[in-house]
Amino acid sequence: MEKPERLIVDGKRLDGRAPDELRPLRIKAGVLKRADGSAYVELGRNKILAAVYGPREMHPRHLQQPDTAVLRCRYNMAPFSVEERKRPGPDRRSVEISKVAREALEPVVFLELYPRAAIDVFIEVLQADAGTRTTGITAAAVALADAGIPMRDLVAAVAVGKVDGTIVLDLTSEEDQWGTTDMPVAIMPRKKLITLLQMDGHFTGEEFRQALSLAFKGCEQIYEAQKQALRERYSVKREEGE
């Protein structure tokens, strides 16, 4: 694809969204039978599956922590998730995203309840269209809750950025590629604490503050959808039984 002349026309973005609008979001909890918890999230053209196993016995044993559980996270992109086939396996980028995703999720999980155990989180990107690390974190938080793991809160994440001089919410791959700035943000919505903040490009101080408050607004919407997905998982079954 070639660079379009303008990414924002008459205040509308290429896909017709307003600058402060999310892509269509769909979250479903409990999609995998063999996992302890799972979630599937679609955000625009992103399709991401998260699975949680555990708490379970930690192997290898030397990585056990005597006083707490260990959260392990793997972010992986399917070879067919992007336009040009991605070489399978971990690379520099996915190792970094696995690490930041783990650090974004760790503060909400009551790890100290499960000494010596491990909780494994797998984030599989089936189709990517920018913002996969944030969407992956959103999915992983729902999967953790679905696994029945005690948590202080959920984690909601979204990216903000600057495109054609405008601060926009939830960038698409075109906006990511040709925009000036991309800033993924993950928060614990209840206490409004940031658990992930990265930035590629530059903002002025004022732009940064504006972008951050936009990200908080986006996360708020995602948080509601997450809670809704968890409730739906059980209310559907309740109707079946009656």
Partner: peptide, 20 residues
């Protein structure tokens, strides 16, 4: 956790629906 709130006088409990 995800569960059913069980209120019993001064006692609060959430009955989990999942978990090991």
């Amino acid at each position: 956790v995800v569960g059913l709130a069980d209120l019993h006088g001064q006692e609060i409990r959430v009955i989990p629906l999942q978990g090991r």
